[in-house]
Amino acid sequence: MSEEKIKSYAQAILSVASSEGDGTRVEDEIYRFAQVLQSSEELKATINDNSIPSARRQQIVEDLLEGQASQASVALISMLIAAGMASEIKAIADQVVGLGAESRDKAVAEVYSVVDLSEDQQARLAAALKTATGKDVEMKVIIDESVMGGLLVQIEDEVIDGTVRTRLKQLREAF
């Protein structure tokens, strides 16, 4: 799939979300769905299985997100599956949050953590990252047990790793 096509879908989603009123929420919900999809191999395989009729796969997603996301988000995700873009949902979601943040003159900061961050922690982390990188950021907290503890932040191509996993890895390599 070409980058151009993915970007086109992302812009279309952003336009729809903006017209629905709460564009930021839609961005966030689509991004979170993409994260859930990445963490569940079974769900990803089902959504990507072309032998299952797209209507059936749409129904599965709609049932899964019922009451968990806005109707606009559910409709947009369902539309991607109907358009045969199920395998590109992660890339499209990344483009959506990236373009959305860019439209607000911000960068996306993917924060990997074992526990969720409080609003206060997110605000202080955003301020710290602005100090470190000079960029205003929008937090996307991703719960990842593999980091064991601490945080890993990725802003575009820059990674700031302060996880226990990496510390232990460095300890192992030091031997």
């Binding site: 982390l125 710290a128 700031i160 302060g162």
Partner: peptide, 14 residues
């Protein structure tokens, strides 16, 4: 401990 690690991280980055 997790909260302390997060705080340390924020402080170090800042």
């Amino acid at each position: 401990a997790q909260a302390r690690l997060i705080e340390n991280y924020i402080n170090q980055v800042g």
